[in-house]
Amino acid sequence: MTKALNSINSNLKGYKLEPLLLPSKQTVVNIDSLSEAILISILSLLPTKVASRLSVISKRWRHLWTGVTAVELKLEQLLYCIIKSCFKLVCNHKVEEIQVTSASFIVPRCIFQCETLVNLDLNRRKSFRPHSNANKIMSIAGNS
């Protein structure tokens, strides 16, 4: 075996298909044959609302979306206390990154007390007062 391979090795430059044996059998593979871990990574890349809608696809998909590692929510016209409890919830779930894209947004204090937070991005938010120095990266892009 080693000898045969050595001769192939010396004859070829890069990789090359050697049609030595049987041709490959074409099998149909669809998205449902992906592992749960991969499906969850795909769902994590979708807006959370879209991901949760996919729970009705089939029984296998029923709870997949609850495993997403990123949450993207549009909070519209909510009271400050509701926003605050939303952020409190994510901070308690060991969030590492928060991005806020809102022109008028009062930063809840819990964000600055969150120990796991690595990246805080307050896009378009101009002034705030941090309460802790636990955050490692902070980016503030002002759109005036």
């Binding site: 391979l5 192939i8 090795n9 070829l12 890069g14 990789y15 090359k16 298909l17 050697e18 049609p19 030595l20 044996l21 049987l22 041709p23 490959s24 059998k25």
Partner: peptide, 8 residues
């Protein structure tokens, strides 16, 4: 399917 590829 038993095809061989020589890879850098």
């Amino acid at each position: 399917d038993n095809n061989l590829f020589v890879v850098n």
